[in-house]
Computed example of a mutant assay.
Amino acid sequence: MSDLELVAQSAGAVCSACSVPAVVQWQRRTTDGTVPVFGCGRHAVSIDLAARVHAASCPAPDEALLPACGCTPEPVPETDLMALAQAPVFTWPT
């Protein structure tokens, strides 16, 4: 099991498509706000797409579309982009 899978498993997050421990999470818009969607390594969207809020009708994680998602996600707010640019880079201990 990879380090990412161990972290995800300890957090209890599982893939929305197959229930394997998740390695990526993104948000899907609902009428009441947003809900988390999780993907394992096999069902993961790209890192760029994971950073954005997706349409309620987004089919991800659909294997036929990956690493794309099948919708046009909302743009990332400019303030979030600045925070990401200044965030420290995480590296796994060796």
Results as ranks from 00 to 15, higher is better:
Ser2Gln: 01
Ser2Tyr: 00
Asp3Trp: 07
Leu4Tyr: 08
Val7Pro: 01
Val7Phe: 14
Val7Glu: 07
Ala8Pro: 05
Ala8Arg: 11
Ala8Cys: 07
Gln9Thr: 03
Ser10Trp: 07
Gly12Lys: 04
Gly12Asp: 08
Ala13Trp: 14
Ala13Phe: 13
Val14Gln: 07
Val14Ala: 09
Cys15Asp: 03
Cys15Tyr: 00
Ser16Ala: 13
Cys18Tyr: 10
Pro21Gly: 06
Val23Gly: 05
Val24Ala: 12
Gln25His: 00
Gln25Lys: 13
Gln25Val: 00
Gln25Tyr: 03
Trp26Glu: 00
Trp26Arg: 00
Trp26His: 01
Arg28Ile: 11
Arg29Met: 14
Gly33Leu: 06
Thr34Val: 15
Thr34Pro: 12
Phe38Asn: 11
Gly39Phe: 11
Gly39Met: 03
Arg42Ile: 06
Arg42Lys: 11
Val45Gln: 01
Val45Ala: 07
Ser46Trp: 00
Ile47Gln: 05
Leu49Asn: 11
Ala50Gln: 10
Arg52Lys: 09
Val53Gly: 07
His54Arg: 11
His54Thr: 07
His54Cys: 10
Ala55His: 15
Ala56Leu: 05
Ser57Glu: 14
Ala60Met: 01
Ala60Cys: 10
Pro61Ser: 14
Pro61Ile: 04
Pro61Asn: 07
Asp62Glu: 08
Asp62Lys: 00
Ala64Thr: 09
Ala64Phe: 00
Leu66Arg: 06
Leu66Gln: 09
Pro67His: 13
Ala68Leu: 13
Ala68Lys: 13
Gly70Glu: 01
Cys71Ile: 07
Cys71His: 05
Thr72Val: 09
Glu74Pro: 03
Glu74Gly: 03
Pro75Ala: 08
Val76Ala: 04
Val76Gly: 00
Pro77Tyr: 10
Thr79Pro: 02
Thr79Lys: 12
Leu81Met: 06
Met82Ala: 15
Met82Thr: 04
Ala83Arg: 13
Ala85Trp: 02
Ala85Pro: 02
Gln86Tyr: 02
Gln86Asp: 06
Gln86Ala: 13
Pro88Ser: 10
Phe90His: 08
Phe90Gln: 11
Thr91Gln: 08
Trp92Gly: 09
Trp92Asp: 00
Pro93His: 10
Thr94Gln: 12
Thr94Asp: 14
